[in-house]
Simulated scan of single mutants.
Amino acid sequence: MTAPHPTPHPTPHPAAGSVREAKRTETREAIRQAAVVLFAEHGFDQVTVTDITRASGVARSTFFRYFPDKAEVLFEDDSASHLLLAKAVAGAARAAEEPLGDSFGAVMRVARAAILVLADSKAIQAVRYPVREQLIAETPQLQACSLVKERGYTDALDAALVEQGAAPLVARQAAHVATACYDAGYTQAFSSPETLPETVAAAFERLFAL
């Protein structure tokens, strides 16, 4: 008797994951765009989450799957920026001429390279969403959120530097100094966000010229 052939298992469509991710990105962007328009027209304080969900055509439960509150709509996903910093630190550390260890100079050079990658990314976002930058400048609550984000960059940079072999105390100090340079460049480039990489680089140049 011929043995029966095993029943083949269905093969998942290779693009299924990317389709879902594209849909998530599309939904997130629709919420963001609707919110920015409403904030620009009515002011941040006058717009509710319900207003945003109605304008973007999503349910409240969907909104809260993407954002914890309406302020977060105006900021990029923290995890993406932190991952970007970690990858940039790893790349710069591999290219460094010496181990990081407790060498403040070596750690700062790697931190500078990573922060400049972040600045490039943020410049692209700012040019894409100029109204968002204006809203942040005009709204104290959003300014506070922005400061929290910057502290998050410091922590992420610190952790990435330690992961690549920097001594913990040196990594912490370098992370604070590097994000201070980012903040100085951000302040200078506010009215011309496309210049953020240049203004951040100039802040580091002033530091390294000491």
Results as ranks from 00 to 15, higher is better:
I115S: 10
Q143V: 12
E72Q: 13
I136Q: 05
A92S: 12
E72S: 14
L142N: 03
R60L: 15
T50K: 10
V110A: 02
A137Q: 10
R60Y: 03
V148E: 14
L118F: 10
A80I: 11
A40E: 14
R109E: 14
T50C: 00
L100Q: 06
V117I: 04
D69V: 02
D120Y: 13
A113P: 05
K87T: 06
V110R: 06
S79N: 15
A156K: 03
D102I: 05
L142K: 02
K149Y: 07
R128H: 07
S79G: 05
M108Y: 12
I136P: 06
A80H: 07
R65A: 09
H42K: 05
P99L: 08
Q134H: 02
F64D: 01
A92R: 04
A59L: 12
I124V: 15
G101H: 12
V73L: 13
I136M: 09
E72T: 02
D51E: 01
Y153R: 01
E150Q: 13
A71W: 05
D51Y: 04
V58T: 10
T139G: 07
V107E: 06
A156C: 00
L147P: 01
Q134K: 13
L135A: 10
V89G: 09
E97V: 06
S56Q: 05
Q134R: 13
V127A: 12
A123C: 06
I52G: 11
Q143Y: 11
Q134A: 15
Y129A: 14
S56K: 08
A93G: 04
D120W: 01
R151N: 15
D77W: 05
A159Y: 00
R109G: 13
I115K: 02
G152R: 04
I52S: 08
R128Y: 07
T50H: 07
G57C: 11
V89S: 08
G43Q: 00
V73D: 14
T139Q: 05
M108F: 13
V162E: 07
A144C: 02
A88K: 03
I52P: 07
R112W: 00
Q134Y: 02
A114H: 03
D69R: 12
D120G: 14
D51S: 05
D155A: 13
E138M: 11
F75Y: 13
S56G: 03
H42A: 14
P140K: 07
S103Y: 00
F104D: 00
I115H: 08
T53N: 00
T48V: 12
A88R: 02
V49K: 01
L157A: 11
A106E: 06
Q125A: 15
L84T: 01
S103M: 02
G43C: 03
D77A: 04
V127G: 01
L85M: 06
K122D: 04
K70Q: 09
E41C: 08
L83A: 12
H82Y: 15
A123T: 08
H42Y: 09
G152I: 01
A137Y: 04
V127T: 10
S103V: 13
L116T: 04
I52F: 08
R109S: 14
I52Q: 08
V117S: 07
R128G: 06
Y129R: 15
